[in-house]
């Protein structure tokens, strides 16, 4: 494992912790898209089917459990917690996320590295993760005024994707046995590009020390 991969995983972990912290301490999920959170829970569930059948490392297993556990806890908070669920911007979070799931599944059935159940589900999770942030970005655009924790959450997620790309470039040159993974690379690149616009406004707001405000 290289430093970029580790830094990517840590920013990913921090993004989830920031979100849980916001929900747990402020008892609010304002500005957070439930649609995106549902997609992430589905992404992790589909990707980590090998958690009990294939052992890579303790690090891998623990991180998978954390991502699964945290994503389903966030869903629980937003749907079931009697205080938190009242702060959910239901009327603004209208992205029809179900329409992302089917095309990703069809694409995974058509374009994959190996036509087995686990491999197709894994590929599906890669495609779905690439677009899962869309409902969240649409919600941010609608709310326009973004609170600090929500802004940090999306920033950390984007940073995680950026670091993973550097990790792939590093692995490609540093590991002789590392082969080309077009599916992961293209999906990962697309996913990172989706954050570009947000990054621009986020960095400007940090630089000028003002609240993040997205254009209408």
């Amino acid at each position: 494992m290289n430093i970029f991969r580790l830094a990517g995983d840590m920013t990913h972990l921090m993004s989830v912790l920031v979100l849980l912290l916001k929900i747990h301490t402020i008892k609010s999920c304002a500005g957070i898209s439930l649609k995106t959170q549902e997609l992430y829970a589905l992404v992790f569930a589909a990707r980590y089917l090998d958690i009990f059948t294939h052992y890579y490392s303790l690090y891998n297993t623990v991180m998978k459990l954390i991502f699964l556990g945290s994503s389903f806890s966030i869903l629980w908070y937003m749907k079931r917690h009697k205080v938190v669920r009242r702060s959910y911007d239901k009327d603004q979070d209208t992205f029809r996320h179900h329409f992302l799931v089917l095309p990703c599944l069809v694409l995974a059935l058509l374009i994959n590295e190996k036509f087995t159940f686990k491999e197709v589900m894994w590929t599906f999770s890669i495609y779905l993760e690439a677009v899962a942030i869309l409902p969240q970005l649409v919600l941010l655009q609608r709310t326009r005024n973004v609170d600090n924790l929500t802004g940090q959450y999306v920033f950390l997620l984007g940073a995680y994707r950026g670091l993973y790309i550097i990790n792939w470039i590093y692995r490609y040159f540093a590991e002789p046995t590392y082969s080309t993974h077009w599916i992961t690379w293209i999906s990962g690149l697309l996913q990172t590009l989706l954050y570009a616009d947000f990054f621009y406004y986020y960095i400007n707001s940090v630089k000028n020390n003002v609240r993040l405000q997205l254009p209408a």
Binding site: D50, H54, Y56, N60, M63
Partner: peptide, 10 residues
């Protein structure tokens, strides 16, 4: 699973 290193990322 002939390529155990295939999905070693999260």
């Amino acid at each position: 699973d002939s390529q155990p290193e295939l999905h070693d990322e999260l």
